[in-house]
Write a protein that binds this DNA or RNA. Sequence first.
DNA 1: CAATTTTCATTTGTCTGACATTTATTGTTT
DNA 2: AAACAATAAATGTCAGACAAATGAAAATTG
Lengths: 245, 245
Amino acid sequence: MKIDPKSKADLSAQIAKAIRDSIISGDMDVDERLPSESELSEQFDVSRPTVREALKRLAAQNLIRTQRGATGGAFVRRLSYEEAYANHITTSTLLLSMNAVDFETACEARFALERACAPLSAQRRTPDQLATMRAEIHRQTQPGLSDESFCDSDVAFHRALVDGADNPVLSYQLAGAVEAMQPLMNMITFTQRNRDMIVGLHTRIADAIETHTAELADTALAELTSYTLELGQQAMAARAAKAPD
Amino acid sequence: MKIDPKSKADLSAQIAKAIRDSIISGDMDVDERLPSESELSEQFDVSRPTVREALKRLAAQNLIRTQRGATGGAFVRRLSYEEAYANHITTSTLLLSMNAVDFETACEARFALERACAPLSAQRRTPDQLATMRAEIHRQTQPGLSDESFCDSDVAFHRALVDGADNPVLSYQLAGAVEAMQPLMNMITFTQRNRDMIVGLHTRIADAIETHTAELADTALAELTSYTLELGQQAMAARAAKAPD
DNA sequence: CAATTTTCATTTGTCTGACATTTATTGTTT
DNA sequence: AAACAATAAATGTCAGACAAATGAAAATTG
């Protein structure tokens, strides 16, 4: 592990990269202990604060954890599914908002991916997941439900659908598309008629998932896609009319 | 922006969280300048090294960039698609390898998602993307190609397919599944017969994409799914026989 | 001898203060 | 007016210190 003195990057960034590479390459095993901060500062020939900055960078990426005390130190961390999942959603959301992805694009991606899950979900869904879907549908019919809560419930419904596929890789990738769309969905105002329509489609999806008929789920999802797209375009149009740039 | 003195977490972690929240919430705009390190250390009532550790955490997450000099400082950074994309792949790969996702699960997810893209790609692919697919197919027929290069080309082919859908959100989410599978694919030894079979299926996919016939692309992808699964299971079996645990 | 307590060494967490480096601005000189 | 030099502000780096946590070894005690 050596660093390039010619590089103009920060020392802490270079050191972080060197250590990161040796973790990612599999050179270091999970729970293996890194040299202590003092040892690292000797090895890289920098001061301890610089080493610490490098380690904090790695900690921010969940690549290491640190522990105080005699047998403490920095340890290679097993990347937990839950953390990666949460991070993925944050990043996806940021990416959508900062780069101004339009509603159509996000919506299209979301439903395309969900339709990929539906057949698997129809095969494998547990009674539990089905019950969750039913419960969320019921929640969506509650009078006086705010638009935001309606959206929350919508996401919960679709997450149950996706999780029904019983494939963590799918759930992970889908989460980025489904959850990241929530801010965009929140710009829609749902009338009672809109909600009835959506609840109807959700019910058809749940029915199809219950009876293991992938085709019905797919057609209902297709209809939901175009309906959501429609609602989104209306919302965008209303927004544009109100605040023209 | 205040921090909780009761929390037992590191100060730098708390401070990073506080700043991160105000960036993610949209409280701060892109390219807006954060207070200087000295100002932050006063605001949070900690020392400058502690503030710096917090800032390095944020820098590691690509949330800020720093600039030296008189008008320098830390600025909120626009999360670039390319960076997020690269990070997403790294994380997905790590997640797969560290959490030992089995070949079947990863493979199923990958092809389910690709099949979701195929109809869109059949509609929208550019001549360029089609040419890329053809070129990669040609590369896959080259004699003497290493297994690793074959896998590389395979990924490039499928990336072109996915990009053909012309939906960055899809491309982003797909990348996590397609590229992260490469280490698993690399464990397969491809015989000439295997390669012929795969090239044949790739050709059928490219033909379908060229003639805008989504159905044919779907059936070819379905066949490729089961064939890949088969190859994977063989490879895993061979591996298990050689090095029994 | 066994169990408990104390001491101790190690390691991360934090602070203070300093100097180096970069860079836009301001002032000076030609 | 243009070129150059001084200045100030900000990040980058360093050195050294102390605090706090923590496991292990040593000492004490029943």
